[in-house]
Design a protein around this nucleic acid. Sequence first.
DNA 1: CCTACCGATCGGTAGG
DNA 2: CCTACCGATCGGTAGG
Lengths: 169, 169
Amino acid sequence: MATTMRDMAEEVGIEAASLYNHIQSKQGLLHEICFGMSHRYLNNLERNLHARRTSNLRSVLESHLDIILQYTDEAAVAESEWRHLAEPARNDFRIKRQNYEDRLLGLIELAIKQKRIRQMEPKVVLYTVLAAVQWIQRWYSERRNIDKGILKQNILSMIFEGLETKGNG
Amino acid sequence: MATTMRDMAEEVGIEAASLYNHIQSKQGLLHEICFGMSHRYLNNLERNLHARRTSNLRSVLESHLDIILQYTDEAAVAESEWRHLAEPARNDFRIKRQNYEDRLLGLIELAIKQKRIRQMEPKVVLYTVLAAVQWIQRWYSERRNIDKGILKQNILSMIFEGLETKGNG
DNA sequence: CCTACCGATCGGTAGG
DNA sequence: CCTACCGATCGGTAGG
């Protein structure tokens, strides 16, 4: 895993061995972070599906962005390190993640059928949309100088309305 | 680094020590992959800037996608592992990457000024656009069943025209 | 919270 | 291409 116990110890100014007074194990900490994040994403989806009858991809993605902006570091760790979870946790996590993606895919397919979004390969839409919201957790920690409101608004606008000006002629 | 010499040896069916008959060192291999990729991206940009006078963000991104689709595995390694380059290579790489991003940012800022793309925070546009083309190198190796042409077309269309249907009323 | 230390695993070398 | 092995570093424990 990218960050060693000695890295973490140095960051808080103690010896590596002393970290074990605060956490059970490195695996335990990773487990907490990963499942904490997948719980937040799935809860958000659940809440959205119950709040409105025509479930709205845009509002799910907006809440997804809120979660990432609130838990940026944890989101980054979960995304880059979940593969190092020990079995069976790793498989549990994969299933939860797959479930989230499958349900987003369902929303996309429905929106295409209802012609609310254009005719495209649903999986390409899914991964592009996820990438568009998830770059924050990889890069934003180094560039926190962009206002969160503008960030959210611009990303959602790019996803749904695209880059190009419309009434150009 | 994520992949050990013993992993790589197993993949090709020899002992770890025997790999050193084919490569100089693990660092040397990483160096080759990372700088090979940044060379391709920068060359592509150079070619595009000279080919047309109004430099076209769309054509640069299309060629960027072509490179990723042709060198998917190398692109994935460079993106996820360049931080493990030893200095001064790591800093050299960072400078090349920064240069590429800065020049893309320049294209975006120009297009906004010329009202060819909508008024948005240029850096948010840059990172969203890069994320939209780069998810392939993280995920496509597991999902190669999507046609490359459709993939390219859909991603570029999402970036520039967005998801939503336009003439809906 | 520390020092001292463990077995496992890493990238890499020697010698054939 | 192999066996045998190296020093360094990892996550973690013992004992205080």
